[in-house]
Every structure is written in C-alpha cells, then in structure tokens.
C-alpha cells in the first residue's frame, strides 16, 4: 500500500475513533472536541512560521480524526514553544499548549519520548537541575557567605522511581523516537 503512494500524500485507511475521547480525558485535553478548524492558532504561531512541521490546527485535526500512532510517534507534538498565543486567541477555548502537554503525556506512556526531552529528564535525575553545579560555583558561594549547593539530588531520583518515570527512561521506552 505504502509503496504505491506518493511519499508526500499520506493515505490513511485506519482511524481510531476513541482517540479524541482519550485525549479529552487527559488533563489539559478537555476542550479538544470544540475545535472547528478556523486556523487562528496556526495564523499566529511563531513556531509554524519557522517550521511547517509544526501546525497546531493540523495536529488537532489528526487527533479528532483518530490518527493515534501518527500523532503520538511524531516529533511535532514536542515542538510547541508554549508561548500561549494560540491559547489567548482560540475562539473555541481549545487551550492548544495544554492539549500538546496532554499528547506528550500519552506519548511518554506509550514509550515515545523526544530525545531532547529524554536528555533533559536524565540531567534532572542526576543533578536535580538542568545543569551540573561544579566546585568552582560552590567556592564562590562560600566566599559570598552563601551555603553550598549539593551536587547530586537523590530526592529527585526517588520521585522518578515513585512516579514510574525511572522505569520509562530505563526500560528502553524512549527508544521509539
């Protein structure tokens, strides 16, 4: 089937009609079914201006149609810059950045994690923050009369364990993207 088609015209034969309800149940996705495809979100989207891969209207359309795999496995849902311009303007109050968060949460549970986010998650697991605090920084802090910052943060790792994020990261779940 795939080979017979031109590469840039995707032909979809199977839709998952339950996907839109699944997204609507996820925190942030509640209003997705209000979308009437007016295009206001994409009109003002700064990311869409730079990269046509990210088109919030089309992503929502694909969710409503039920293209579950295509949406969750795509890297486009990770591209939203969460500037909330579309959120402010959407006449149907779809709350698009939060829909993207809902989609990301579902995607992660399904084993799709964008490599950039995986890298960030691993950094936070190790250091408790996005960057390593080196000895020089702590020396300076001591000079200024500030307390030292611990270099690791085992509590965060513990949270990862409790929430199941550690399993998702280590179980090879992120490997799909």
């Amino acid at each position: 089937m795939e080979s017979a088609q031109k590469k840039d015209v995707p032909v979809v034969t199977v839709l998952d009609p339950k996907f839109k309800y699944e997204v609507a149940r996820e925190p942030g996705g509640e209003n997705i079914k209000y979308c009437f495809q007016c295009g206001t979100c994409t009109s003002g989207c700064k990311v869409a201006e730079f990269d046509s891969k990210y088109n919030p209207r089309k992503i929502i359309r694909m969710v409503i149609l039920g293209m579950r795999e295509r949406v969750l496995s795509g890297d486009f849902i990770w591209l939203c810059a969460t500037c909330y311009t579309c959120h402010e303007r959407c006449p149907q109050d779809v709350r698009i950045p939060e829909v993207m968060n809902a989609l990301k949460n579902i995607a992660v549970r399904e084993g799709y994690i964008h490599p950039a986010f995986r890298a960030q998650a691993e950094l936070i697991a190790g250091y408790g923050r996005l960057y390593e605090v080196d000895e020089l920084a702590n020396e300076k802090r001591t000079d200024w009369g500030l307390t030292e910052i611990p270099q690791g943060c085992p509590e965060v790792a513990e949270i990862y364990g409790i929430t199941g994020l550690a399993d998702l990261l280590s179980g090879g779940a992120g490997g799909k993207l």
Partner: peptide
C-alpha cells in the same frame, strides 16, 4: 478559509495579516 490571529499596523499605515490558508 482561515481566521487571522491578529492585525499589525506597519509604519506606512498598511495593515499586515498573517494567516494560514487552509
């Protein structure tokens, strides 16, 4: 087909509209 998000006024008084043509 496609609703604009905003109108911008340029210095020459012209009105710029960015929209998605669906």
């Amino acid at each position: 087909r496609g609703k604009p998000g905003e109108i911008e006024e340029r210095d020459d008084g012209c009105l710029r509209i960015i929209s998605e043509d669906l």
